[in-house]
Amino acid sequence: MRGAGLTVRDVLYEAPGAGTRKKIAVATAASLLLLALLLGLVIRQFAIAGQLDRKYWFFFARGTTWSFLGKGLLGTVEVAVVSGILAFAAGFFLMVGRISQSRISRALCTGIIEFTRGVPTLLFVYFFFLVAPQLGIRLHAFWKITLPVSISACGVVAEVLRSGVNAVPKGQREAALSLGMREGSVFLKIIFPQAFRVVIPALLSELVIVLKDTTFAYVINFPDLMQNASVLISNYDAMLSVYLLIAVIYCIINYLLNKAAEAVAVRGKEKGGAK
């Protein structure tokens, strides 16, 4: 029972006596009943509203439905991956600017980072959707969603990377400098690789936020998962079932990304502990 991974959640209660065990058993049964009742009520509401009807669900058995949704998902993934790469690149430069010796560059980069972190993605989306055309900037729909998503992520990426750089012990830099390496190559070859390894989980969590933000693609009619879902809805007149399914798909993808982040974090800790 008492493993190394003991958390407060596990030790909060002492081993229950006979009376407490009975109470817990009763509470367990009652809560099970309550949850079942809740589920039942939801299903009943579906049935009453006629949403369990075959016509709202039959098209999920068709291959064309899934290939169409798959195409949308591909659009979503494309936007997410390109945004992720852009945000990482921009975040890297912002981070370098923020830790540099020059006071101007520090102030500028801090300002940009705080700005991108304090403004909602939707406002950036509206900037590229409504304001940019007024300035004579014509962009493809793909960039109208990719740019705002990456802009609103780059500040967070910069801060995550900076926390990684700060986590690398000072001695590493001093040792490399005393070996005659130059400041720039010390950073690129010694400090950054270690910092990057530390922050992989945090970067994966940020990718979840990027993926969530791509759903705003429907604002500008870019064919992503959400947009293709609404086409499906107008074809089959099935609002509830399709949107429910889309939500589940997003949840599963993000859940898996979060799990991956946790797994990487645990592995990193084990490696660190083995030293």
Binding site: Q45, Q51, Y218, M226, L244, A247, Y250
Partner: peptide, 22 residues
């Protein structure tokens, strides 16, 4: 569920899909 659902997806469900459940 609520950690992973995109905000837009949840809002659309609440605004447009829930009325189908009365």
């Amino acid at each position: 569920i609520f950690r992973n659902i995109p905000g837009a997806s949840l809002l659309i469900l609440l605004v447009y899909a829930l009325p189908y459940l009365d």
